[in-house]
Design a protein around this nucleic acid. Sequence first.
DNA 1: AATGGCACTCTCACATCGAGAGTGCCAACT
DNA 2: AGTTGGCACTCTCGATGTGAGAGTGCCATT
Lengths: 347, 347
Amino acid sequence: MSDLSERQKALLLVIIRDYIDAAQPVGSKRLVERYHLDLSSATIRHEMSALTEMGYLRQPHTSAGRVPTEEGYRLFVSEMMSQAVLPESVQNTISHQFLQARPGVDQWMHLAASVLAHQSQGVSMVTAPRLETIRFQHVELISTQGRQVLMVLVIAGGEVSQQLLTLAEPVSQERLSQTAQRLNTVLVGETVTELASMTGRADALEQDILTLVLAEMRRATESTSGEIYTDGLTNVLSEPEFAESDEARRALRIFEERSTLQDLLARTALNSTVGGLQVLIGGEGGWEELRQCSMVLARYGVPGLATGTLGVFGPMRMAYARTIPTVRFVAGLLSNLVNDQIAGQDQ
Amino acid sequence: MSDLSERQKALLLVIIRDYIDAAQPVGSKRLVERYHLDLSSATIRHEMSALTEMGYLRQPHTSAGRVPTEEGYRLFVSEMMSQAVLPESVQNTISHQFLQARPGVDQWMHLAASVLAHQSQGVSMVTAPRLETIRFQHVELISTQGRQVLMVLVIAGGEVSQQLLTLAEPVSQERLSQTAQRLNTVLVGETVTELASMTGRADALEQDILTLVLAEMRRATESTSGEIYTDGLTNVLSEPEFAESDEARRALRIFEERSTLQDLLARTALNSTVGGLQVLIGGEGGWEELRQCSMVLARYGVPGLATGTLGVFGPMRMAYARTIPTVRFVAGLLSNLVNDQIAGQDQ
DNA sequence: AATGGCACTCTCACATCGAGAGTGCCAACT
DNA sequence: AGTTGGCACTCTCGATGTGAGAGTGCCATT
C-alpha cells in the first residue's frame, strides 16, 4: 500500500490535479500531451494500472480514464497539507478586507464566509466564536409598551441577545432600570452555575428577570445553538457533481436545515484543536447522504476561552490546493481577532 | 379578449388547475377522461382552440397539449383572489404556532417564513417590520475590554442593533454608563432629523456616541437594509422547472445575493398597500432573468407606523390556490402582532 | 352547436451504429 | 529490467432512424 515509488506518487498527484480542474476521467494519452512527462503513454498506463491496483485510482468503466478514489484524494490532501501556501498577495488582500470592515462579530463572520467561499469556490461555513465559560456581563430592560418589556442581555465577550417578555402588569421604565442596575451589580462576571444557585430574590420582578437571564445563558451554552454563516451556495451548483438536481437538492437541504450542519460542526469541534485542519473526504464522519463531497474544517479562537469552527464544503473534487491554505489562513486571522477582543478581559 | 363564455372560463380554470399539479401540457382527451365534463373531446378541442386564439393558452409545439400563458395565469389568479380561502383547520394550526412561539420579532419572522414555505411549497420571503419614522429609544454602552466598547442601540418598536467601537483611550464603565444615561434622557423619542440638528455636545465622548447613534439610525432608515428571512429553497428545486441546473442556479443566486431581492421587495412595498396582495407572474416588474417564475407578495403591519413585506416565490406554475390565501392569512396575522406591539406606544 | 371520424404532425423512447478514446498485453528495444 | 510501439479489444457517446402514442384541426353528420 505505502510502497509508492517517487514516480508513482508524482504521477498520482498530477492525475488528481488534472481531474480536479477538468472534471473528467484522465487517460494516459492526455497526460503525456498536456504535461510533458518524459515517458510514453504505455509506461504511464503501466503505472496507472499499478495505482489502480493499490486503490488510489479507479476506472468508471473499462476503457475510460482514471478517477481518484477517496484513498487517492487522502494522499493528495496530506501532500497539500504540508505544501500548499496562500500567495502573499492574496493574504494581504484578505487581511486588508478585515481591517477595513466595520468591527463586530457579525461583520467578521460574514466577511470570513464571503472570503472563504470566494477563494475556494465552494460553500463556506462559519460559526461565531463561543465562549467556553459564559459569564454574565450586563442586562438592560426597556419598556416598549404597557406590559411588554425588551430584555437585552450582554454576555462577557460581547455577545448580545434580546428577548421580548410580557409582564403581568405594567411597570415603569424607571423601576425597570433600577431592577436592571441592581441585577447588574450583583450578577456581573457570574457563570451559569453560579447564577443557578442564586434563587429566591426578594423582588418578584427581579426574580422573573433572573430566571430569564439564566434561561438565555443556558441557551447560549448549548453547542448546537448559534447561527451558522454560509456563503457561496451558488458556486457549488455549477459543479458537474450537482448537475443532477437530486444531488443538488440533498446538499441544499443540509445547508437550509442547519441542524445537520450544526451537529457536524459541533462534532468536529470536539475532535480538532485550534490550529489544525481537518479534511473530511467523501462524507467521512457520519455524512451518509453526500458521499460525493468533502469538507475542509478548522477550529479557530483562543483554546480554553472562546473558539469557533469554520470550513468549506464542496465536491470531493474540490480545489484543495487553494482551499486548504485559505481555510488555514482565515482561521488564523479570526483567531487573532478573537484574541484581541478577549485578551485582558479580566482587567 | 374579454368575451369569454362561461364554459370557456370554466374550461380554462380546469386546464390550468390540471397543468399546475401535473406539470404537463394538457390535451383534450385527458380532460374528458379525468374530469367528467359532459362534452366530447372534439368540442373541448374547439374551445381550446378558441382560448389559444385569445391568448390564454399556448401549444409548446403542434400536437402537444396546451399550456397556460401568462395571460391565462393572470385570469386564474384573479379568480383565486376572490375565491380561495384557507381551510379553517389550517388557519388554526398556524395561529396556534404563533401563539406557542417565543415572542420576539426574530422568532415571528422565522416562523412566518417557515409556515409560508411549508404551505405553499415555494420559497418564502419575509422582511421584518420597519418603522416609518424611526425614533430613538435607548442606548447602552458596555465596556468589553480596555478601549473597546459595545454600543447597544434600541429603536422605538423594539429593534436592537449593536456595534463595536474602539475609543482613543480607555474609559471606565461608570463613565460610559453616565454618558449613556445622559444621552438617553436627552434623546429619547427623537427622530433622525431631530438628532441630526443636535450637534456640538460639550463632552467629546458624548459627541462621538451621538454621531454613531445617528449613523446607525440612518442605516436603519434605508429601505434596502435589513435581513430577509427565507425558507423552503429546497421545495422549489424539486419542481421540473428547475431541473436544469442553470435555471436553478439563477434562482438560487437571487436568494443568496439578497440585494436583488431587497430591491424587488422594496419596490413592491411602494406599490402595494397593507391588506392587498400583489401577484407578479412570469417575472413581471423588472425581473428579467426569471421569466418562468412568479411571486405572491403582500405588505403587512400598521400603515403609517410600521410595515413589512412578505411573500412566496415559485415557478409560474405554482399552487396559487394554496399560496394566495396563505400569504393573505399570514400577512393578517403579522399585522395583528405588529399592531399589538406598537399600539399604545405613545403612552 | 355538438360530435365522431380521419388524416396529419410532432415528440419521445428505443434501437442501431460507427467514431473515438482508452485500456491491457506482448514482443521488441535500450 | 524498465521502456516503448503496436495492436486488438471494450466501452461510451452522439448521430441517425423508426414506430408508437398523443394531440390537433377540419369536415361532414347529427
